[in-house]
Amino acid sequence: MSFEIKLPLFEGPFDLLLFFIERDELDIYDIPIAQITLDFLDYLHQLEIMEMEVASEFILVAATLMKIKSRMLIPRPELDEQGHEIDPREELVKHLLEYKKYKSVIQELSALEENRLAKESRGNILSELKALSKIDEVEAEIQDLDLYKLLKVYQKVMAKFADRTDETMHTVIQYPYTIDQQKNFVLERITLRDKVPFSDFIEYKADKIFVIYTFLAILELLQLSLVTLTIGDGFNNFWVQKTEGVSAT
C-alpha cells in the first residue's frame, strides 16, 4: 500500500521559516537554530522525494542555516569592537522581521486588488480613443485636399516669411566718437584745470553715447597711468586729474 504525501507550498524560504516559528510558538529573537535547521532540511528532503524542483533560494537559506549552526558551536564566540559577543543569528532575525512586516502589507494590498478588479470601468475607453485617433488621421485630411487649398496655404506661409524678414532688418549706425578721440578730449580738459569732476564731462554734452565713450577713455587713461581718480562730491561723482610728472599731451 502506497501513501501520498502532500506538503504546503511556501512562497519563499522566509515564509517557511516563519511557518516553523509560528507553529512551534518560538521567540523570533531567540531562534533555536538546530531545531529550525532540521525542520527546514526535512522539508527540502520531502520535496526531493516528491521529485519537485527545489528553488535555489531555499538551498541558499539552508546553507546559511547550517553556517549559523556551525558558528554557534565554535567555543570562542566572535566579539565586536566594544567586546560584546556577536550573535550569528542577528542578520537572519533582521531579514525575518523585514519579511514579516512586508508580508502583512501584501495581504492588505491583495485585498485591495481583488476589490478593484471586481469593479467595472465606466464607458468604453478603447472605442473613444480609436474615435479620437481617426480625427487626427493624416490620410483623412489629404482626401479633402485640392489645389486651391494648397495655394492658400502657400500664400499664408510666404506672407509670414515676408513679415519675419521685415522684422529682422535693422540699420547699423556708426557713432561719431572713438576711444582715442575721447582720450585726447579728456587730456585737453584736465590740462586747463588741475582736476575736473566727471559731472563736467556729462554737462559738456548730455549725450549717452558721448558719456560712455568718455568714461571708457578715462578708464584706459587710468590703466596707462596718465590720470588718477579721486572720490568727488555728489552721487557717483569723481575727480579726474593728471598724474604728476606726466605730460597731458
Rank of each mutant, 00 (worst) to 15 (best):
Y102N: 13
E120Q: 11
L221S: 01
E120L: 13
H170L: 10
V157Y: 13
I179V: 07
E120R: 12
L226D: 13
T168L: 08
K101C: 06
L126C: 11
Q182W: 08
K134N: 02
L96T: 02
K160Y: 12
Q143C: 13
F198M: 01
V105F: 09
V153T: 06
K156T: 10
S104E: 05
I142W: 03
L219M: 07
L147R: 15
E90R: 14
K103S: 13
E98S: 15
T171G: 04
F161H: 13
K160Q: 07
L126E: 07
D163E: 06
F185A: 05
L226R: 10
E113A: 08
N115Q: 09
E114L: 15
A162R: 07
P176F: 02
S104F: 06
H170Y: 15
L112E: 14
I179D: 02
I142A: 07
V153R: 06
F201K: 00
K94D: 15
D207H: 01
Y175I: 14
I218E: 00
A140Y: 01
K119P: 00
R122P: 12
K205L: 08
I209G: 03
S104I: 03
I218Q: 01
E141T: 07
S121N: 06
L96G: 04
K160I: 06
P176A: 00
K101G: 07
E203S: 05
K100Q: 09
Y154W: 14
Y213V: 04
Y177C: 00
E141P: 01
Q223F: 10
K195H: 12
A206I: 02
K156C: 10
A131D: 01
L219F: 08
A131I: 00
D180H: 05
L132F: 06
L224K: 09
K183Y: 03
V196T: 11
V157D: 13
T165V: 09
L97M: 08
E167W: 04
Y99D: 14
I135Y: 01
R189N: 04
I173G: 02
E128C: 05
D200I: 05
K152Q: 13
L147M: 13
Y177F: 14
K130Q: 03
V196F: 01
I179Y: 00
S199N: 05
M169C: 13
L129I: 14
F185M: 06
E220A: 09
R193I: 09
V196S: 00
V157R: 12
D163Q: 04
D207C: 02
Y213T: 08
K183N: 02
A159L: 14
G123K: 03
K130Y: 00
F215D: 15
A140D: 02
T178K: 03
V93T: 14
E108C: 08
S104H: 08
V153A: 14
L150M: 06
F198N: 01
F198S: 07
I106L: 15
I218L: 07
I190W: 00
E113H: 06
L224I: 01
E141I: 07
L117G: 02
L187E: 02
E188K: 13
F215M: 12
R164N: 12
V211L: 02
I202G: 00
D180P: 09
Q174N: 11
L147A: 15
Y154N: 15
E203Y: 04
A217M: 01
S133I: 03
E167Q: 09
A162V: 03
L145C: 05
L150D: 11
R164L: 14
S127F: 04
F185P: 04
K103D: 03
S104P: 01
K119L: 12
I179W: 00
